[in-house]
Design a protein around this nucleic acid. Sequence first.
DNA 1: GTCAATGGTTGATGATGTCAATTGTTTATG
DNA 2: CATAAACAATTGACATCATCAACCATTGAC
Lengths: 162, 162
Amino acid sequence: MNGLNDGPSEQVMRRQASPSGPAESEGGLPEQAWTLLFELLHTHMRNFPALAAEFELSPVQAHVLRQLGEGALAMSTLANYLSCDASNVTGLVDRLEARGLVERKSSEQDRRVKMLVLTEAGAELRGRLMARLSAPPPLIAAMPDEDLAALRDIMRRALKTQ
Amino acid sequence: MNGLNDGPSEQVMRRQASPSGPAESEGGLPEQAWTLLFELLHTHMRNFPALAAEFELSPVQAHVLRQLGEGALAMSTLANYLSCDASNVTGLVDRLEARGLVERKSSEQDRRVKMLVLTEAGAELRGRLMARLSAPPPLIAAMPDEDLAALRDIMRRALKTQ
DNA sequence: GTCAATGGTTGATGATGTCAATTGTTTATG
DNA sequence: CATAAACAATTGACATCATCAACCATTGAC
C-alpha cells in the first residue's frame, strides 16, 4: 500500500476555515492540481445516476456491470470492489440475476464460493454501457489535441507507477 | 450547454464487444485521455462512502454539506443540485436538522420557500470535511512536480473556457 | 375572487446499506 | 479422525436513499 503522507510537502490544510471549500490558489502543487480535477470529477459524477438510468440500471448496478467485465468474480471480491458489506451484494446480485444479466456459478475448487459471470444479455448491455461511459464529457472533448496528449501521457505514467 | 458529439472525430466505439471495457490504445485522443481519467475517477469514488463515514455522514449528506457552503439554498435548488426528487430532500434535511448541522429558515419574500443554512456546528464539520476532500489521493500525491504543474495548467484552461 | 402554478411535505413502495446471527464448507489443530 | 476455527454466502431486522402520487399553503394571473 502506498502511504499517503510519506511525501515531501507538509503544507496541507493551511486554512481549514475557508468558507467555500478548497481554494484553487492555495496549497502545494498536488493540492492545486487535485482541486481542479476534483471539480471535473464531481460535475461528472452528478449525472452518473441519469446515465445509468438510460440503461434502466441503478448507479450501483452499473458499477457492478462495469467491474464484472474482466471475467468471473466471487461475491466477496465484488463486495471488496464496492467496499460494502457482503450481505449487500446478495440482494444486488439477486436483482441482476432476476433480470437475466448475471449468473451465479458454484466454484469447483471451493464450494462455498459463488462466481459471478455475465450472461449473453449482460455482456451485451455492458458493452453498450461501457461505450456510453467512454464518451468524453464536453469539457474533455473541447480540449485542444496538445492538452489531450499531455493529459493522456501524464495519466499513463501515474497509473503505471502506482 | 455544449453539445457532446459535435466534435471532429467519429471513431468512437470501434469494438464495443471488447471484453475489458474501453481499450486504452483505441479511439481518438479525447477517448484515450478520458478513459484514463475515468479510471482515477472511479477509483476515487469507490472510497467516497468510507471518507464520508469518517465524519459519520452518508455520501449524500456529505454532498449536501459540500453544496451548502456557498450560502443559503432553497430546498428545491438543492434538489436540482442533487438531481433528485424534492420529496427526497425533505427527509434528508430532516435528518441533518435533527443532528443540528443545518437549519430551515422561511424566506421573507416567498413564504412557501424554505432556505437552508449551516449552523455553527454544520459549518465547522463542513470545514473539516472539505479539508479532507482536498487532500490529493496517493496517485496524485506521487506525481512528479512537472506533471502536476502541467496537469494544473491544462485543467485551468479547460475549466476556464467551459 | 377564482383558479392554475409553485414549494414543500406526507405516505406508499422499492433499492441500497449496515449489523448480527445462521448455514454450509474448508482448513488447521489436537 | 475429530473437533474447532475461519470463511463465503445468506437471512432478518432496521435505517437511509430514491421515486411517485396526493396533498396543503402560498403566490400570481385572470
